[in-house]
Design a binder for these strands. Structure first.
Length: 125
DNA sequence: ATTCTAACA
DNA sequence: TGTTAGCA
């Protein structure tokens, strides 16, 4: 796991901050946890601590709810996403591979990087 | 001041 | 889901 993903997975936000960031009530946020849709960590004093990924997850849940999904329905959505990820893993076509291929395409097909800019002919002003 | 669990008008 | 009670 790289630094960026590591930071996003760090549980450092108390529920009060999560409330402000998601516009969800404490009641809802805690309830979704009992429904096993989010899994916040716990601090020493038993306080729930959320990560940025948890924030994204809560916002997603919010959207699914607006689309008419119920708790178990949303749970199934994430179950499928997990199965999907496992399938891709077995096929060795991971997200990292996709990004690697895309970057190669961009570098060859023409041009938006500083390397190329420095090689362009100078123009007088 | 903030969050937690449990319970209910 | 909201709200309130009684703790930590």
């Amino acid at each position: 796991m790289n630094e960026k993903q590591l930071r996003r997975s760090l549980a450092v936000l108390p529920i009060g901050t999560v409330i402000k960031l998601t516009s969800l009530s404490a009641r809802q946020i805690r309830y979704y946890e009992t429904q096993e849709l989010v899994f916040p960590e716990r601090s020493e004093g038993n306080r729930r601590m959320y990560s940025l990924n948890d924030i994204d997850r809560l916002l997603e849940i919010k959207d699914y709810l607006n689309d008419g999904f119920n708790m178990e329905g949303i749970r199934k959505v994430y179950a499928m996403k997990k199965a999907q990820a496992a399938a891709e893993e077995s096929q060795k076509l991971s997200d990292a591979d996709v990004r690697r291929m895309l970057r190669k395409e961009l570098l060859n097909s023409g041009g938006m990087l500083e390397d190329n800019l420095t090689k362009l002919p100078r123009r007088r002003i």
